[in-house]
Design a protein around this nucleic acid. Structure first.
Lengths: 150, 150
DNA sequence: GTACTACATTTGTACCTACAAATTTGGTAA
DNA sequence: TTACCAAATTTGTAGGTACAAATGTAGTAC
């Protein structure tokens, strides 16, 4: 389906507009589907993202700055995301003893379990879209996107 | 900048993951920049989107369903978006005389003025990204995105 | 030690989003 | 006309986001 049909446009769009809309809409499609996956786990996409970042720390705690700079949406409110994860006991939060301004956030074993329950579903999600393209086309798409936003 | 650097990933990502993240991040970059443009006009991206849809009606009023189905984010709350636009006197809302369940939304001349003030800025915004690619590359990117999300 | 500045995080506020439930109106069958 | 179901929109609620202001801590100059 062409993007013109998605937005029921009556006029032809130029390439610059189409590309921008296509990126916006692709993100929407991806997010909607991902939300479906997360729903039974009572996690928002950003909460999931924070858990992924914490797992990537491999046991080392992460402070708020570190989490922030690794998120896709750089303006998310990390404090409140961590608050939500704390309530669900998926992470711990402690004041850093070396620098009391900093917080040390760690994923709990319950958090790791949730992530590992999700792993295969997330992989399926990624492949659901990726399999529509050959691996050469995926490479190309990545290159074009990186060039486009650079 | 590779997407791995954006999220400061220490491990290599496979192509399926990279593509998904690249789309998510590209959308973020586009939205952040677009928000900057809209800020002085006191409009949210979705409010702007509604105004664009109404202008596209060329004088014909649009009801809520029509607006909804033309939006990129299909789950937006059209009622409240229109509420906000009404407060700013950028649109009018009247009960449809033929079918009192429906609402007739129309853009006002003030709304049209705001849009025309924005037109060149929006065009610049689209071209800011588009100009990084040749027109063949843009075509290709559009095709790949449409295939990817199909 | 005091003042000053920067760093790290939190809080406040207003808005937006997702989704379900409620409301109002229209159409249809008995 | 009444009952009932569907269509169109609105409302309620619980989150999430953007951004500015506030808080608490550290480091440095005097």
């Amino acid at each position: 389906m062409k993007i013109e049909d998605v937005i029921k446009s009556t006029v032809a769009l130029d390439n610059a507009t189409r590309t921008l809309l296509n990126i916006m809409f692709a993100q929407n499609v991806i997010s909607d589907k991902f939300n479906e996956i997360l729903k039974p786990f009572d996690l928002s996409p950003e909460q999931y993202n924070v858990l992924r970042i914490l797992r990537g720390q491999k046991g080392k705690p992460a402070n708020m700055c570190v989490i922030q700079e690794r998120m896709i949406a750089k303006t998310s409110n990390t404090t409140r995301l961590v608050d939500k994860l704390l309530l669900k006991e998926l992470v711990t939060r402690e004041v850093c003893p070396e620098n009391r301004r900093k917080m040390e956030i760690q994923i709990t074993s319950k958090g790791l379990e949730v992530l590992s329950d999700l792993d295969s579903k997330v992989e399926d999600h990624e492949n659901y879209f990726a399999k529509k393209l050959t691996s050469e086309e995926l490479e190309l798409l990545n290159d074009l996107l990186e060039k486009y936003r650079s």
